[in-house]
C-alpha cells in the first residue's frame, strides 16, 4: 500500500476548506511536509487523520510516509489538544531544582500523567527535555508563556490563572 498516492480516498472528495490554502502555500516548497504539518497544527491544533490522504496527494507522498512523519515527531498531535497546554521541563537542570515534585504535583492536580489530556478537555500536560530556560530552573510553559523559578505555589496559581482565562 505504500505506493498508493492517496488517490483512492481523495478522488471523490473535496479538500477540507481550511486545508486547501495551506496546501497551496506549501506544496511547491522543498521539504514541504514539516512546514505544512506545522501550519495545519497551528490552524486547527492538531493534524486531523482524515486530512492525511490530501496532504499525501498534494506532496506526492504515500499516506504511510505522511503518517510515519506525524508519528515520529512528538510535537505533532493526531487528536485535538486541551484548551490549555502545560509543558513542564524534566531536563537535568530542572531536575536539580525540584522538577520531579512539580511534575508529580501537576499530575495530581490535573489527574493525568505527562503526555495526557484531561477528560474534560481543559488541559494537555506535556513533558519536555529542556526549554532553554535552565538559567531559571525549574521551568515551564503554559499556552506559550514561559515561567521560570517555578514553585509548587506558583504552579497552582499558574493553573488557576489559566482556568480563569478559559
Amino acid at each position: 500500500m505504500t505506493g498508493e498516492r492517496g488517490s483512492m480516498e481523495t478522488r471523490d472528495r473535496e479538500v477540507p476548506s481550511p486545508l486547501a490554502p495551506l496546501l497551496e502555500a506549501h506544496r511547491s516548497r522543498p521539504g514541504a511536509l514539516l512546514p505544512l504539518l506545522h501550519a495545519v497544527q497551528e490552524a486547527v491544533g492538531y493534524v486531523p487523520p482524515a486530512w492525511v490522504p490530501f496532504i499525501a496527494e498534494a506532496l506526492d507522498l504515500s499516506r504511510a510516509e505522511v503518517h510515519g512523519v506525524i508519528r515520529f515527531y512528538p510535537h505533532f498531535r493526531q487528536t485535538p489538544p486541551g484548551a490549555h497546554r502545560l509543558v513542564l521541563c524534566r531536563g537535568e537542570s530542572c531536575l536539580a531544582r525540584g522538577a520531579e515534585e512539580l511534575i508529580a504535583q501537576a499530575e495530581r492536580l490535573l489527574g493525568v500523567f505527562l503526555g495526557g489530556d484531561t477528560p474534560d478537555g481543559r488541559f494537555s500536560l506535556e513533558g519536555v527535555y529542556c526549554l532553554g530556560l535552565c538559567g531559571c530552573s525549574p521551568a515551564a510553559m503554559l499556552d506559550g508563556q514561559v515561567q521560570g523559578r517555578l514553585t509548587p505555589r506558583g504552579l497552582e496559581a499558574f493553573l488557576a490563572a489559566a482556568q480563569e482565562r478559559s
Partner: peptide, 20 residues
C-alpha cells in the same frame, strides 16, 4: 518538531527534507 535526535546533523538534514 520536538525530536532531540534531529540535532544530529544527518537526522537534521532528513528532517529538513521533510522526512522522519
Amino acid at each position: 518538531a520536538g525530536a532531540y535526535v534531529c540535532g544530529e546533523e544527518t537526522a537534521l538534514l532528513e528532517s529538513l527534507e521533510g522526512k522522519r
